[in-house]
Amino acid sequence: MRSPRTRGRSGRPLSLLLALLCALRAKVCGASGQFELEILSMQNVNGELQNGNCCGGARNPGDRKCTRDECDTYFKVCLKEYQSRVTAGGPCSFGSGSTPVIGGNTFNLKASRGNDRNRIVLPFSFAWPRSYTLLVEAWDSSNDTVQPDSIIEKASHSGMINPSRQWQTLKQNTGVAHFEYQIRVTCDDYYYGFGCNKFCRPRDDFFGHYACDQNGNKTCMEGWMGPECNRAICRQGCSPKHGSCKLPGDCRCQYGWQGLYCDKCIPHPGCVHGICNEPWQCLCETNWGGQLCDKDLNYCGTHQPCLNGGTCSNTGPDKYQCSCPEGYSGPNCEIA
């Protein structure tokens, strides 16, 4: 077999650049994923090309098998939009790539799955459409700058595939050579959905506090709520009108309100015997008056200043008058 000629994957630097851009600016990249293909086995019993010639040398006159050299087999892949009637021409609109030389006439790579040499990765940054057309071609490398490479066999497949970690196996069982391969579509990290176009990256910072479920939905951490999980859940009972919080379990009062639940107004400074319904009010309790509710309107009842059976009459805020019984006098009937 001729010395292998290595063929790198098509578009790999571009895919790395796209992945970097997506990581830095995830909101700009609407989708991100990759179409993967792995060659599993190849069977070319006679070492022939599609045109019937030998990959190298002439045929044995007896059994008609190619004798001089085995094929240097590598694969090309073209991925494009779905076609009900597949045409070989036209651009590979979803991507293209190739393997290096991975074997001779016949080989089996099932035991070495995950080997990069027999895998082609086609990254995409558009919403995966699920339906596709795939062209797979086996080629013989001439290892010659003058002699062109020659095609051994080709296969085409049109179908639908959803993103999954599971592989789907396909076979080419007609023509001079048979080969088996597997395909799958996977979303990149933080991308979800059938189109790999739903973005969700767990975070716990100013912009949100959430994890992501298997469908890419945000699940808020304990103590947080809202579409972006950036609204803290305040202390139970915290007034929704007069209290708020920036951290879970907190209850910060608005100006003019106080209390554990921010449901108590702050009265006017200096208010003595008054209450409030709104901040800075001083609504006097019964029998109290004045701007600060510090004037006693029922001095008689509060202090009972009249002595010796005198009768007390309220005459104004903090004022009274005693009517003394016979034989007593003085402001409080204290003089006998």
Rank of each mutant, 00 (worst) to 15 (best):
S3F: 15
T6M: 15
G8V: 14
S10A: 01
P13A: 00
A19P: 03
A19V: 04
A19G: 04
L20P: 02
L21I: 15
A23T: 15
A26P: 03
V28E: 05
V28M: 02
Q34H: 09
F35C: 00
F35V: 03
L37W: 09
L37M: 08
I39S: 01
L40V: 01
N44I: 14
V45E: 08
G47A: 01
E48K: 06
E48D: 08
N51D: 06
G52V: 07
N53D: 06
N53Y: 15
C55G: 08
C55W: 01
R59W: 14
R59L: 15
N60T: 15
T67I: 14
D69V: 14
C71Y: 05
C71W: 15
D72V: 11
D72Y: 07
D72A: 15
T73P: 09
T73A: 14
K76E: 14
V77A: 15
C78S: 00
L79I: 10
L79R: 00
S84C: 15
R85G: 15
V86I: 10
P91A: 13
C92S: 02
S93N: 07
F94C: 07
S96T: 05
G97W: 10
G97E: 07
S98Y: 06
G104C: 04
G104A: 14
N105D: 04
F107V: 08
K110N: 12
A111S: 03
S112C: 04
D116A: 11
N118H: 13
F124L: 02
F124V: 05
S125I: 08
S125R: 08
S125T: 10
W128L: 12
S131T: 00
S131C: 02
L134V: 05
L134M: 02
D140N: 04
S141C: 10
N143D: 13
T145S: 12
T145N: 05
Q147K: 06
Q147L: 08
I152N: 02
E153A: 10
A155D: 08
H157D: 12
G159A: 13
Q166E: 09
K171R: 13
K171M: 12
N173Y: 09
N173K: 10
A177T: 11
H178Q: 03
H178Y: 04
F179V: 11
F179L: 12
Y181H: 00
V185M: 06
V185E: 01
D188E: 04
D189E: 07
D189N: 06
D189Y: 09
D189A: 09
Y190S: 09
Y192N: 03
G193V: 00
C196F: 00
C196W: 00
K198N: 11
F199L: 08
C200G: 03
R201L: 13
P202L: 07
R203S: 11
A211S: 15
D213V: 02
D213E: 00
D213H: 04
Q214K: 04
T219P: 13
M221T: 06
E222G: 11
M225K: 08
E228K: 07
R231G: 14
Q236L: 07
P240A: 10
K241T: 09
G243A: 04
D250V: 05
D250H: 02
C251R: 13
C253S: 01
Y255N: 08
C262G: 02
I266L: 12
P269A: 03
G270A: 08
C271W: 00
C271R: 00
H273L: 02
G274A: 01
N277K: 00
L283H: 04
L283P: 01
N287D: 11
N287K: 00
N287I: 01
W288L: 09
G289D: 03
G290S: 03
Q291H: 05
C293W: 00
C293R: 02
D296H: 04
L297R: 15
L297P: 02
N298I: 00
T302P: 02
T311I: 09
C312Y: 00
S313C: 13
G316C: 13
D318V: 15
Q321H: 07
S323C: 02
C324Y: 07
Y328C: 04
S329L: 15
N332Y: 15
C333G: 03
I335F: 14
A336V: 14
